[in-house]
């Protein structure tokens, strides 16, 4: 297997292997707390911080963690960061902390984080693991922002609380309710899949045209 470069480690998670949009992981927060841009962003940043911290420590201590109990140790490390993140959020942005509720504590079971530890941080150097965590974390924030902006703009008619369409805009209440999360994620995945299919079809027809020529 070819070794990936540092640049690839960083960029991979942002778009090409985006944890939400391509790997379809971490759907619980993606569906549950993306009803406003602010909530999505804070959730994204909290997850980013937890992922970065956990990847750093897991790759740093990977020599001392016996294989048999590695998952327990990863969860312990992740849970510590989540608890710290929860306290920091409550101290810094109490209103958002209230809105996110139990979903901050649930970052512990976000499979993106455990997935990156098991798939990458446990086998790679600290430097590469940090790059990988930054990439995946940014990819997660990106997906959360896509969901949050679509849902807030349609569901409230605002962006980050700023009204976009004037007073008489009729909010589409469904978009900020749970069904709206599923609809939005479905539409995003559908659009990306459609674009990808079209691109692939174009590539194939271009290649066959070359062969004939």
């Amino acid at each position: 297997m070819r070794k990936s470069t540092a640049q690839e480690d960083l960029l991979r998670g942002i778009w090409r292997e985006n944890p939400v949009l391509v790997q379809v992981l971490g759907l619980c927060p993606t569906l549950a707390v993306t009803n406003t841009v602010e909530n999505s962003l804070v959730m994204g940043i909290a997850t980013f911080a937890v992922l970065l911290g956990s990847s750093f420590f897991v790759s740093l201590f990977k020599r001392f963690i016996p294989n048999e109990i590695r998952i327990s140790v990863y969860i312990l490390i992740i849970a510590t960061f989540v608890t710290v993140a929860e306290m920091c959020l409550e101290a810094l942005v109490p209103e958002v902390h209230k809105a996110l509720g139990a979903f901050i504590a649930l970052i512990v079971v976000n499979c993106i984080i455990l997935g990156r530890q098991e798939a990458f941080a446990a086998k790679n150097t600290v430097w590469r693991s940090v790059l990988d965590a930054i990439g995946s974390g940014l990819g997660f924030i990106l997906a959360m922002l896509m969901m949050g902006s679509l849902r807030e703009v349609i569901g409230y008619g605002t962006f980050l609380g700023i009204p976009l369409f004037g007073d008489s805009y009729e909010p589409w209440v469904v978009m900020i309710l749970p069904p709206g999360g599923f609809l939005t994620l479905g539409v995003i995945l559908l659009t990306l899949g459609y674009v990808e299919e079209r691109r692939r079809a174009n590539r194939v027809s271009a290649m066959s045209a070359q062969e004939r020529a």
Binding site: E170, W172, V173, V174, M175, L177, P179
Partner: peptide, 10 residues
């Protein structure tokens, strides 16, 4: 059902 969820007042 969509309209009911989206525009419950109208």
């Amino acid at each position: 059902a969509f309209l009911q969820a989206a525009f419950p007042v109208a």
